[in-house]
Design a protein around this nucleic acid. Structure first.
Lengths: 223, 223
DNA sequence: GTCAGTAGTTGAACGTGTTCAAAACCGCCG
DNA sequence: CGGCGGTTTTGAACACGTTCAACTACTGAC
């Protein structure tokens, strides 16, 4: 059937939300989807692939939430702030199980790992969003301009990591931390743009470039 | 028996090294230790607790490897470089299974998570090592001096994360990246010490302080 | 209309981490 | 010796993620 896959994914996301990752067993997911256990594996090779699907979906939601409003904002700081706000809003409902997301994200062997080949498309798209943030802003020198999207993506992962560990009411800590850090990042970009610290900046950019290049050369080890 | 626990840990570390984390089953570990399956669980509440033990051990090895030579080095950069070199040397034999270490390290619910209460002692000690790096160096202003160990610890985790994903021969990429980044960190510390970028530095330090404080206030959720 | 081939679906079976009630062992007091 | 309280040890049992050979449904060619 055409919608079987969709039904399974829907059931999975529901159960992830309701019970968290471990408690949402494949059997329970299959049952709620009205499908046999083996069938779930026909569409999703493993439980982690379900997370990958979740990953894709929240990314789409995020992009949609950012919308065209981004184009109206002119300053770098305002643009970054907007994107980050929408990020936190988008992922909030999934806080319970997002933890596990990061767990496997850190595992080089997981398909979920942001550096793995399987998730490269999502990551590329995700980075694209930050490229948009940078785009409309003059006053950022070219060499920085090229690498900044990657750096911002990395920064945004850091915030998400903080958010995952955040147990405060309504995640207010994460919001505060996000706003402050956006401020800081904007300041740093400004400073780097004036290039007072020439050698340091060049060295930093060279390193980032290397980090980026490695992905293409070194294949992931077999599972 | 007194040494049962030690035998189990020994068997576990051997199998981790030989086969990696997943292939080293609890049954295999118990068998090699000459002990029943249940007995292994009597001493180590879960498989992750075995990793925690590994964690502790490599930290001790690292401290031992750093030794007193550190005291002879006078410049910040040389001191940091020494500590980081010894780190990479210490963990090298475990590259195969270190991946999984990080996997659970990112999970807030895992005892292995560096921010969790269970591993706080190790982390504190680990940070202490970087406190030693900072100690003997004048020319670092006081406010920075207080937070720098935490920042360096974070930086060192970043390098380890890179190392985990590194599949290059003899891990030469990690070594190169480490050396370059140590250089960069040293430059940044120098710049920050001159405090050309006053407001940015103050903002950054405030954030780091906040990040540190959160750990004590927010308890980990129940498993 | 038939039949082969593909796509979809099933549930039993495997090996895993983990739990737990019961057994074995130990030191010590009477 | 005898038995008692505790620590240690055992292995069967459980639920889980995952695999796979078998089965069904469907589609298109002749």
């Amino acid at each position: 059937m055409k919608d079987t896959k969709a039904r399974i994914l829907k059931a999975a996301l529901e159960l992830f939300r309701e019970r968290g990752y471990e408690a949402a067993t494949m059997r329970a997911i299959a049952e709620r989807a009205g499908v046999s256990l083996g069938n779930a594996y026909y569409y999703f090779g493993s439980k982690e692939h379900l997370i990958q699907a979740f990953y894709d979906r929240t990314h789409l939601e995020h992009v949609a939430a950012v919308g065209t409003k981004l184009d109206e904002l002119k300053e770098f700081k305002a643009r970054l702030l907007w994107v980050m706000r929408k990020k936190l809003e988008t992922i909030e409902p999934y806080h319970r199980f997002a933890a596990l997301l990061f767990r496997s994200a850190a595992d080089p062997k997981s398909p979920l790992n942001p550096f793995s080949s399987e998730s490269q498309p999502v990551r590329r798209e995700s980075t694209e969003l930050f490229a948009r943030v940078v785009e409309g802003v003059r006053s950022i020198p070219k060499d920085l301009r090229v690498e900044l999207p990657n750096l911002l993506w990395l920064y945004h992962m850091g915030i998400v990591l903080y958010w995952i560990h955040d147990q405060s009411e309504g995640r207010w800590r994460s919001w505060k931390m996000m706003e402050k850090s956006v401020d800081l990042v904007a300041k740093l970009v400004a400073v780097a743009s004036f290039s007072v610290l020439g050698p340091a900046r060049r060295a930093a950019l060279a390193m980032v470039r290397e980090l980026r290049d490695q992905e293409h050369e070194a294949p992931q080890p077999a599972r």
